[in-house]
């Protein structure tokens, strides 16, 4: 008994520690909701146009998480929900960046056009610093 305990204690601890990851009993409902909401937010922010790959990655993660939820494999669903959130946040950030870049380009072009139309020297109208 003592022997067993003594010899198998590290192995046992290892097994327990690895098993805990898979055996989270509680369904990660809040995480799933949050993940879905963030994917939706990314979509609304223009991710389909400005960050389609990132959005698709997030949607795939979300689909995996949902599949795990259906299988009641919550141990797999929870990290997938987390990953979905991160992927959705990235899609959102990239959409924001893409939109900002597009606007900057458009406005820079417009300003240049305006300047040439109105024949305003660059230092005359709109010296930024």
């Amino acid at each position: 008994m003592t022997l067993l305990r003594r010899y198998n204690l590290p192995a046992l601890l290892f097994c327990v520690s690895t098993l805990t990851g898979c055996a989270t009993a509680k369904p990660p409902m809040a995480e799933m909701d949050d993940a879905a909401r963030r994917v939706e937010a990314a979509r609304a922010a223009g991710a389909p146009t400005y960050a389609p790959m990132e959005l698709r990655a997030a949607e795939e993660r979300l689909a995996l998480a949902r599949a795990a939820m259906r299988k009641e494999d919550y141990g797999q669903a929870a990290p997938l929900a987390d990953e979905t959130q991160a992927a959705a946040d990235l899609a959102l950030a990239r959409a924001r960046l893409g939109k900002a870049r597009e606007k900057v380009d458009a406005l820079a072009r417009e300003n240049a056009q305006l300047r040439s139309d109105l024949s305003i020297d660059p230092e005359q109208g709109g010296s930024q610093r």
């Binding site: 960046l97 900057v104 406005l107 305006l114 109105l118 109208g125 709109g126």
Partner: peptide
């Protein structure tokens, strides 16, 4: 991405101001 977006948004503000200044000029 966020830092770059913020940077671009600031550039956009400057361009907006520049736009106004062009019109004012």
């Amino acid at each position: 991405a966020t830092a770059q977006a913020v940077e671009r948004e600031r550039a956009l503000q400057l361009l907006d101001r520049e736009h106004d200044q062009i019109l004012i000029a």
